[in-house]
Design a binder for these strands. Sequence first.
RNA 1: GGCCCCUUCGUCUAUCGGUUAGGACGCCAGGUUUUCAUCCUGGAAAGAGGAGUUCGAUUCUCCUAGGGGCUGCCA
Length: 512
Amino acid sequence: MESNTVRVRFAPSPTGPLHMGGVRTALYNYLFAKKHKGEFILRVEDTDQTRFVPGAEKYIIDSLKWCGILPDEGQGIGGNYGPYRQSERKESGLYKKYVEQLLASGHAYYAFDTSEQLEAVRELAKQAGSPNWQYNHVTRNSMRNSLTLSGEEVEKLLAAGEPYVVRIKLPRNEEVKFEDIIRGWVKVNTNNMDDKVLFKSDGMPTYHMANIVDDHLMKISHVIRGEEWLPSAPLHLLMYRYLGWEDTMPKFAHLPLLLKPDGNGKLSKRDGDRLGFPVFPLEWNNPENGDSFSGYREKGYFPEAFVNMLAFLGWNPGTDQELFTLEELSEAFSLEKVHKAGARYDHDKTKWFNQQYLRKLSDEQLGESLQSQAAEHNITIDLAKATSIANLIKDRAVFLRDLWNESSVFFVAPTEYDEKTTSKKWNAESRSYLIDLREIFSNLENFNIESIEKAFKTYLESKELGFGKVGPAFRLAVTGAGMGPSMFEVCAILGKEESLARINTALEKLPA
RNA sequence: GGCCCCUUCGUCUAUCGGUUAGGACGCCAGGUUUUCAUCCUGGAAAGAGGAGUUCGAUUCUCCUAGGGGCUGCCA
């Protein structure tokens, strides 16, 4: 079917931590590549030196690694199309060569207007009532560029080292259309486009230039990126055309955006911690400016759950299956099934996914986790015990840490007693029941689940009491809480001595 | 403002002209459970509005409205 190899790239710019929307873009690229037995490439788009953030590249790589979406080729991995950092690619004059080609063919021109001058023109236009002044086929005639200046003047300025940029020269009134895999045909008239800068005065290409050159040189077959790129796709098409690469141009697929759960707009980095969930895969701390954002990994999410959740934000297999491994996702994925509209992030659903993945773990695996968490609290327990405790409480866990949170009663005697339960269920009566139970339990030879339960129930019968009269007080005395797993199992695990000791403590500490 | 994209339950979504419009999360109710959680059962909940095409539109077209994106020598 596919005679051409699928090669896709994820091309983030290292300007900060990778947001979950970016992770999803990477994921879809990865899935598409795997589905078609192609290659997934990581390219670092660091053409903006002013926005460079130390550690960001490492963060991106670490995040992908945590998620399990490993590039086959690219920055940090290597490959035959390197280097994979645009700042390094620029060193060889790579981009400049193609810029000169465009200059020579008349599809680009030099512009000497400074940022300040442009800003002033824009400001003026705004005051005159036009909010978006553009450097285009009409305004370029009144600007300082190689179209308005004489050849000698241009030569002189260039020779004098005058700062300049190179802009694309767009034709007037031309329909540009391309077929997006997700959205179908998209048409734009060049009259509504502007002469974008291709080459900056600092010697760096802009995204528009670098991405076309690199995608071409790296033999990228499909460009799968966020919807924010849709408006510039026609420009990119024109560039392929002017560079003579239109026949091998990659296919485009513009992904729907991830939206804020509340209100409007796309999910942004400040949203998460504001609304009580992370927007980043990994925690991010920037000592330089004090930026600090929480991450899914540190919050206790399984990468598999995180990835599964992300996959479903904008895509759906068309079946009822919701739990997918990465391999299954790779098999089921298709761009045609990607939804067009933006997807609102739902944190409850994310937690649900995590709970599902926790349940896939065996009791022994859960026990191991509990054992190591206990060790962090300087408590040593053997695996068999940890496993049986984990089995007892796993149904109430969403995160692995819940295993410890829910089971600490087994290792640490209560120092406080739940207020609500105390005021509702603890009184002189219940106190006397506990005194009876202490007596009964201390006479039990085999202190196990069955015997405790039998003794307890026999006591209830003899006193003609309902479970509700004694149970809550019993739980309160032993665990300090108003809820939890079966008390017979709790006591059995605690052992006779500890159980009795706790009842004693409660009788001392809790006034009738 | 201009240009582009989008629009099914609160949320994520299925439906590729004919369905009692399905599922999941969340929510509510009932059951199981001494309690909580789990689990089981059930429930409420959607095609933005208006034209058209058609025997028949959620599905195709157009308009309106709403939402989103872009509008930098940022990506």
